[in-house]
Nucleic acid binder design. Structure first.
Lengths: 204, 204
DNA sequence: ATTTCGTGAATGAACGTTCACTCTCAGCTC
DNA sequence: GAGCTGAGAGTGAACGTTCATTCACGAAAT
């Protein structure tokens, strides 16, 4: 479809491909999207496509990796900001309302595929672990505890936050934007988790 | 594979087929499971299989319908019990620990397929609506409000509960049983939703 | 001159679906 | 009872399509 763009290095090229493929994968699913479909959406021939990704699972792995990199950047910004807790809250809420429509669909597919293909499952599990680790780091900073103490205390909170965010995204892509009543419940739950942690600062 | 069993009516037969198919669908996914696979698992030929289900989507629709019927029976028992709130809580928690391993996998597949195939999406949406309606009925009874008032007040709570239950089931099938910390968070959140409603009884 | 980037036809397997067919058995006539 | 009938349950080969993957080959770039 799109002109190949005379662009730079192979890694950049892979990013471009992943970006242009994204929607096809979300719309047709892991098994539903054929290599022919994907190659066409990437604006290249099948043969050439295989030079970039040796298998379908590799595509998903790369896509997860890309999403993770993006999220890690968000976390980096939040961690060094003056009010990490507020920044985190804003990020979570914006994730839920902003780009969900596409992302939720994709996550539903990845979640389903993760259970079947071990390689995808590993990537997905690793992603959650990484996010949780970043959340723990933020909470450690906010409460003034060290990393391991924060992990022991807030591990469940972090997992809960991740699960909630994913669930909302998936629901949104299936049913359309959440009803105000549901949105209110979600926000309330998140706020409660966050304030419970914020009020749990270590005495000096 | 299995002897045809001399069993009764066509409807019963369909239940048997759905039961024996379930696992294949969960393991291979909507597109991944072929009609040949499914027919073999049902212990019959492809041709005969098509006499029971005209398409793959029809299978999922029937499967959702069966699950819904089962859930409706659970709700019926809860509604007439002496302490519906406790019964409901027990049911939700048992759903999350008991049969999740298989069910979560299946729900991940259905959720993903629901976004792609409108017919499946409709069935899934209807299922959620039905469950929410039953929850509203229980909360109406517990708080002594009428149906429409209960709906206006607790719609978000109900949707939240359904979303949470689904999310936990899907997570369990992907990562194994939730960590104690996460389980505690989930239970806490559910209990909070339920007690918030229980404390909101209408003054007489 | 060699590596990289690109093509798209070819291949063989597997797919969803159809179809012509068999088998079984209850109900009917004689 | 013997013989016919037509409907329901079941079969599996066959059809046309699409799939993932490969490959022989051309164009550009170093």
């Amino acid at each position: 479809m799109s002109m190949p763009l005379p662009s730079a290095t192979a890694e950049v090229r892979i990013h471009e491909i992943l970006f242009s493929i994204r929607q096809v994968f979300a719309e047709k699913g892991f098994d539903g999207a054929s290599m022919q479909d994907l190659a066409r959406s990437a604006g290249m021939s099948v043969g050439n496509f295989y030079r970039y990704f040796p298998s379908k699972a590799a595509i998903v792995q790369a896509m997860v990796g890309l999403d993770l990199a993006e999220i890690e950047q968000d976390f980096a910004e939040i961690l060094v900001s003056s009010d990490p807790m507020a920044g985190l809250r804003a990020k979570i809420l914006s994730r839920m309302t902003e780009d969900c429509m596409d992302d939720g669909q994709l996550w539903a597919e990845i979640t389903a595929a993760a259970i079947r293909k071990p390689e995808i499952g590993i990537a997905a599990t690793q992603m959650e672990a990484t996010i949780v680790a970043h959340l723990v780091a933020i909470f450690a900073r906010v409460t003034g505890r060290d990393q391991s103490q924060a992990e022991a205390r807030y591990f469940g909170h972090c997992q809960m936050l991740v699960m909630l965010a994913k669930a909302v995204a998936m629901r949104t892509s299936q049913c359309g934007p959440a009803s105000p009543a549901l949105a209110a419940m979600v926000v309330q739950t998140i706020d409660q988790i966050l304030t419970e942690i914020a009020n749990d600062t270590a005495e000096s």
